[in-house]
């Protein structure tokens, strides 16, 4: 992205694309969302120049929050290099001219789809989630009119019945991602489709967490240092996924791993889903058992932002 492109764009569009009236409307929704953690604030989501379902909610939240001195990190599936992360990062570089980074520790705003970075976030950071279906009760009750009532009355029996049926049927709660949480002892909230592995990171996180659902027109938030509990039962406590082997590239344990199929004979390796975390570790000299595998070394790792 050249400076010239940015200039061309700024002639036709406002900083961060959205007009100021739209930003104000989103900002007001964010303030309410922060005041009532876990409650989904309706907002007049705009048509964005990328499709609904591709991060329009996260993009609108980021566009309303971002300032010219922010440093942005954009990830999808934990990685800075996935196609949609590349496209959305390009959008913000073009419309704001802010600095982008892949380093978690250097970012002031991190927009994410489906993951929370492995490295603990700090008080100076804001994590913006892209959310497809903000309503945690939606799969149990398709009607907004009904689910809104359930939240109003704090009537979450249906959710507990569903989780309990899972246990009766499968011997465990068969939800592996978008695992519902209770925020500040009041609202049941959808954490977005992050693996349940990431749920504990939300609890008492130092960073502010903002959630944007563009198509469904909802914004919600978890302020820093807020109680976030994954729903469970006393006799069936919440558990996160465990991997039997460490990252094949950096040897990290207790991180979320992607399974990569190497051939058609069952050969596979597990590597960190958080690509920045993995690279940092390798730079520090941590090596996994397949770090020397040719497939593991980039022939074309794509330009870095």
């Amino acid at each position: 992205m050249t400076g010239q492109d940015t200039d061309m764009f700024s002639e036709h569009y406002n900083f961060a694309y959205l007009d100021e009236q739209t930003k104000r409307m989103i900002r007001r929704a964010i303030l309410k969302a922060i005041a009532v953690p876990g409650y989904q604030v309706p907002f007049a989501s705009r048509e964005m120049p990328m499709p609904y379902g591709w991060g329009t909610g996260g993009v609108q939240v980021t566009a309303a929050v971002i300032g010219s001195d922010d440093v942005l990190k954009m990830i999808d599936q934990g990685s800075d290099d996935t196609t949609n992360a590349v496209a959305l990062r390009g959008f913000f570089i073009k419309t704001t001219g802010v600095k982008a980074t892949t380093k978690t520790s250097q970012a002031t705003i991190i927009q994410t789809r489906h993951r929370i970075p492995e490295e603990p976030l700090t008080e100076n950071q804001t994590l913006v989630y892209q959310v497809p279906i903000p309503e945690p009760l939606r799969k149990l009750e398709p009607r907004e009119t009904e689910t809104r009532k359930m939240h109003a009355l704090e009537e979450y029996g249906l959710m507990h019945v569903k989780l309990y049926e899972d246990i009766a049927k499968y011997g465990e709660i068969a939800t592996t991602y978008a695992y519902p949480v209770l925020v500040n002892d009041r609202y049941v909230m959808d954490p977005s489709p992050i693996p349940k592995f990431d749920n504990p990171k939300m609890h008492e996180m130092a960073a502010l967490q903002l959630f944007g659902a563009g198509r469904e027109k909802r914004i919600y938030a978890v302020p820093p240092y807020t109680k976030v509990e994954s729903l469970d039962f006393q006799d069936y406590p919440f558990e996160i996924q465990r991997f039997e082997e460490p990252c094949a590239l950096c040897g990290a344990e207790n991180v979320y791993l992607d399974e990569v199929i190497l051939d058609d004979k069952g050969g596979r390796m597990y590597v960190c889903s958080d690509s920045d975390y993995c690279e940092e570790r390798r730079e520090q000299g941590h090596l996994g058992h397949m770090a020397a595998n040719p497939i593991a070394e980039p022939e074309n790792s794509g330009p870095r932002a």
């Binding site: 609904y52 999808d76 497809p132 592996t176 489709p193 992050i194 399974e259």
Partner: peptide, 25 residues
């Protein structure tokens, strides 16, 4: 249809983190 097409077509985006979680289960 702008909302519908976006959400239907978003299934083209990578979902491998969630798929991994389901695969394990």
């Amino acid at each position: 249809n702008v909302q519908a097409t976006g959400f239907v077509e978003h299934l083209k985006l990578p979902h491998y983190v969630d798929f991994q979680a389901e695969l394990e289960l």
